[in-house]
């Protein structure tokens, strides 16, 4: 068996088995992922969920195997990616946070591997490096409209992780949505300075409740606190209303499916047809209309929200999808009023 393979390899290299133009179409693909934190964080959990969905769909008839490594930083991330690349089992390496320094050191050493860097803090490297981004500002705007309509104290809060650009854009458009329907709304903004820290999220949430907020956009995910304080909250990334129906009105959702398919197509074109990689230098994000983000359902709040508010939000959602309403991407660091 081994001999036969060696023979085939020798023949291929001599151009006797079809040459490069007729390279055999690949049937398998390995996707190795470096997570930002770990499966407990929604940013990573959504990727793990969507990569399984895409694997089941088997694009191009590919049998897709996946592997993930939890939050490794700096040089350790480079070592992890190099191990994935060296193993030969992973043709796509998806680095789910700011890893372009490390990818830069590896991309030319493994020119057939397609690297993906995701989110804030990356540099577009081009070539075999694809630069993916997630913008959730469109559904965040819709949540803001809900907040502006539903608040009684005219004070709405946001508990965010870090003031980084792909957090700021969500917060800014949330407030833009709230102000668009309720100009009196006062903003409360806090950052817990961690990507995942439920204890800190609870402290900051309680502080905002004490400051009068009766609706909080929970980017850091402390919904028990909302429940205990008997206030309404919004979630992001996953449908938090499924987990905490008593407190969560709605969530802004993300999907990595269009992103994954974009990358898999690029890899397949390269592997099957020899098309050179054309990694993007400027970040690529998939809009709400393209399926990159969406607004969740209202779950237990479905009959508690006034019908005219629901109609208003639906109309705005359609307008965003048809590009009649364009929500600007505002990256400024948000502050409390």
């Amino acid at each position: 068996m081994k001999l036969a393979l060696l023979g085939a390899a020798a023949l291929t290299s001599l151009g006797l088995l079809g040459g490069t133009a007729l390279a055999e179409a690949p049937t398998e693909l390995g996707i190795g992922m470096i997570l930002a934190t770990g499966p407990e964080a929604d940013w990573d959990a959504t990727l793990l969920r969507d990569v399984e969905t895409v694997a089941k769909e088997a694009p191009h008839g590919l049998k897709i195997a996946t592997k993930h490594v939890d939050g490794v930083e700096g040089e350790k991330a480079k070592d992890a990616m190099e191990l994935l690349a060296k193993s030969g089992k992973y043709q796509v390496i998806w680095a789910h946070s700011s890893y372009s320094d490390q990818v830069k050191a590896l991309k030319d050493k493994y020119p057939d591997v397609l690297f993906v860097v995701v989110g804030s803090g990356n540099e577009g490297l081009g070539g075999n490096v694809y630069y993916d981004y997630k913008r959730v500002h469109e559904p965040s705007y819709l949540l803001g409209v809900l907040a502006g309509r539903l608040t009684k104290s005219d004070t709405v809060g946001v508990v965010g992780q870090f003031p980084s650009e792909d957090v700021n854009d969500q917060i800014n458009s949330f407030f833009a949505g709230a102000k668009s329907v309720n100009p009196d709304v006062k903003r409360k903004v806090a950052f817990i300075e961690s990507w995942y820290d439920p204890a800190k999220a609870e402290q900051f949430t309680n502080a905002q409740i004490s400051a009068g907020a009766d609706l909080i956009f929970q980017l850091a995910g402390s919904f028990e606190t909302c429940e205990k304080a008997n206030i309404k909250c919004f979630g992001n990334y996953v449908d938090q209303g499924e987990r905490a129906p008593a407190s969560v009105v709605a969530s802004s959702l993300i999907s990595w499916e269009p992103d994954l398919k974009w990358v898999i197509d690029a890899w397949y074109d390269h592997a099957a047809n020899g098309k050179p990689y054309e990694g993007n230098v400027k970040e690529r994000w998939f809009s709400q209309a393209e399926g990159g983000s969406s607004l969740s359902g209202y779950h237990a709040y479905d009959d508690k929200i006034p019908a005219e508010v629901k109609t208003e939000v639906k109309a705005l959602e359609d307008k965003i999808n048809s590009k009649e309403l364009v929500i600007p991407v505002d990256l400024a660091v948000p502050a409390s009023d």
């Binding site: 700011s98 320094d101 804030s120 803090g121 990356n122 540099e123 870090f162 003031p163 980084s164 650009e165 950052f191 300075e193 970040e283 990256l331 660091v333």
Partner: peptide
């Protein structure tokens, strides 16, 4: 937290469209 301040929109943050809480190289 002082470092966090310096890097989160503070004077040490890397300039550019993809700012993150880190300094330039």
């Amino acid at each position: 937290y002082l470092l966090s301040y310096l890097l989160a929109g503070g004077p040490w943050i890397e300039a550019g469209s993809t700012a993150y809480h880190q300094t330039p190289l």
